[in-house]
Write a protein that binds this DNA or RNA. Structure first.
Length: 153
DNA sequence: GCCAACGTTGGC
DNA sequence: GCCAACGTTGGC
């Protein structure tokens, strides 16, 4: 079992949107970066913990926690010409892009701001603080512990 | 809106 | 395979 940080622009899809999913889970699709794709396809597994991160918005930071409920499968959006995530080069015999499904676990009572994470010595090696642009990134058990203890349920 | 970091594309 | 040009991400 592993831990991850998933980034989303809350205007597009926020932790509240995930919490409001009628079936209790949401598809994490639209990832169009190979490094992130490789994690989704090869490494993310059912039961993994997810830090739900809000990016490109007024308050950037970790908004809450989700859980992986379905491991990587081909992202249907790549084959849908009506989707913003359509990829004309995608081939159904060898899908290029993958997605996973995640379920809402809890929303932090207060978002944990990126600026606060930067202040914590235990998080200096965190991928978020060193490779800011990666949208799916691994989180160590230690980092997960520090962050979740800062925002206990 | 600016800008740094970094990923992708395409010519050679 | 290299590298310049270009596009995107994302914090501030």
């Amino acid at each position: 079992m592993a831990y991850w940080l998933f980034k989303s622009e809350p205007d597009e899809y926020s932790i509240d949107d995930l919490a409001a999913e009628p079936l209790g889970w949401g598809r994490w699709d639209g990832i169009r970066n190979y490094q992130a794709r490789n994690f989704l396809r090869d490494r993310v597994t059912v039961g993994d913990g997810v830090l739900f991160y809000h990016s490109s918005c007024r308050q950037v930071g970790v908004a809450g926690i989700a859980r992986v409920v379905r491991e990587g499968y081909p992202d249907p959006a790549q084959f849908n010409p009506d989707s913003a995530y359509f990829d004309p080069k995608a081939d159904s015999a060898a899908p290029r892009w993958y997605c996973v499904d995640i379920a809402f676990e809890r929303k932090f009572q207060q978002l944990l701001p990126l600026a606060d994470l930067r202040e914590l010595p235990g998080l200096r090696e965190m991928v978020l603080l060193n490779q800011g642009r990666l949208s799916i990134q691994p989180v160590t058990a230690t980092e997960w512990g520090i962050i979740t203890e800062l925002r206990p349920a």
